[in-house]
Computed example of a mutant assay.
Amino acid sequence: MQAILDATVSQGEPIQELLVTHGKVPTLVEELIAVEMWKQKVFPVFCRVEDFKPQNTFPIYMVVHHEASIINLLETVFFHKEVCESAEDTVLDLVDYCHRKLTLLVAQSGCGGPPEGEGSQDSNPMQELQKQAELMEFEIALKALSVLRYITDCVDSLSLSTLSRMLSTHNLPCLLVELLEHSPWSRREGGKLQQFEGSRWHTVAPSEQQKLSKLDGQVWIALYNLLLSPEAQARYCLTSFAKGRLLKLRAFLTDTLLDQLPNLAHLQSFLAHLTLTETQPP
């Protein structure tokens, strides 16, 4: 929380400096993945046990919420390049984590988006807690998108294994194209455009609908970093599948978007050249 407050008022960030100085960023990443595994392997068992009816579910909620707290902190401090560098080998695990969350985000968008937070009078405390965990998962995935974008800002200093994981194993550029296509943080309700920001859905005024949202901007910047940096270009295997997916970006590169992110003109030129480029075998 202190790190978020420091960033909000544009002051120095002692929390970020302490994490780097004492080498605690890898510990945070390890803790993040440990809680994720607990939620996947242990928490569902609690929810299935019929005679498990704790009077107080707050301790379990704190464990479930712990993942959101860590990813929120990482989103705040990973803006600084030295934090990403201090993650050392655990940045590989963090890339894998972000990929899992973004894949889930794409899958959710194909099934109608995140669940609504409406409770039921007939549900027991554990069922309510499970519902809260599902809602929290959507917000965590959006935070993971921001963390991944900050990692791509450091593409020139990432290890070869990390670049290979991002570009070859996970093919993140194609996954990011999927996110732009589905835009799970936007929806239409009653004919009105809504966007998810600040843990809730906001109705976007007609005059603001052409404005680039923060999350869309994160995706575009990540794509720019992964496709145009010399380090990534040298290691990205451009298959016919990847070429087909990437060329879909041309439909999104409107004049309005280029006015808001002028650097994307370089990406537009890259895509124009890509149409004439021969693909590589997978």
Rank of each mutant, 00 (worst) to 15 (best):
A205M: 11
A251G: 03
H202N: 11
L212K: 08
D259C: 09
K192F: 15
S213C: 06
F241R: 12
L215D: 15
R235M: 11
E197Q: 08
P206F: 01
S199H: 09
S213A: 06
S213D: 12
Q194F: 12
P184W: 01
L257Q: 02
L253N: 04
Q260A: 07
K192M: 13
A222T: 02
G190E: 04
A205H: 15
K248D: 07
Y224S: 06
Q260K: 06
V219D: 00
S269P: 03
P206L: 04
L212C: 09
A251E: 08
I221R: 14
D255C: 08
G190M: 10
L227H: 05
Q233N: 03
L257P: 00
R250F: 01
D259V: 11
R187W: 07
L226Q: 01
Q195V: 13
Q194V: 03
A242S: 12
Q260E: 08
S213M: 08
R188D: 13
P262I: 00
K214Q: 13
P184K: 00
L249Q: 06
L238D: 04
R200F: 11
T239L: 00
W185E: 02
Q218N: 15
V204E: 07
K192W: 15
A234S: 11
S207H: 14
F196K: 02
P230Y: 01
L227S: 01
H266K: 12
Y236F: 12
D255G: 08
F241V: 07
R245A: 12
D259E: 12
L249I: 09
A251D: 07
L193V: 10
L223V: 03
I221F: 14
L267D: 06
L238T: 10
D255N: 08
Y224W: 12
A222Q: 07
L227F: 08
L223Q: 04
W220S: 00
T254K: 05
S199T: 10
L227A: 01
Q233F: 06
N263D: 12
N263V: 06
S213E: 12
R250T: 10
T239H: 04
L253K: 03
W201P: 09
T239R: 02
S199C: 13
W220C: 02
L193N: 10
C237R: 13
T254I: 11
Q194H: 12
S213I: 02
Q209Y: 13
I221A: 11
W185H: 06
A251Q: 09
L249N: 05
T203I: 15
L226H: 01
N263S: 14
T254V: 09
L257H: 03
L257G: 01
A251T: 08
K211Q: 15
K211T: 15
V219A: 01
E197T: 05
L238S: 03
L223G: 02
G244W: 03
L249S: 04
P206N: 04
Q195A: 09
R200D: 11
W185S: 02
I221N: 15
A242G: 03
P262T: 00
L246Y: 02
P184C: 00
K243C: 02
E231G: 02
W185D: 00
L253P: 05
T254Y: 00
S269C: 10
N225S: 08
T203A: 10
D216Y: 14
E197Y: 08
F196P: 06
S213T: 15
L264M: 09
T203D: 09
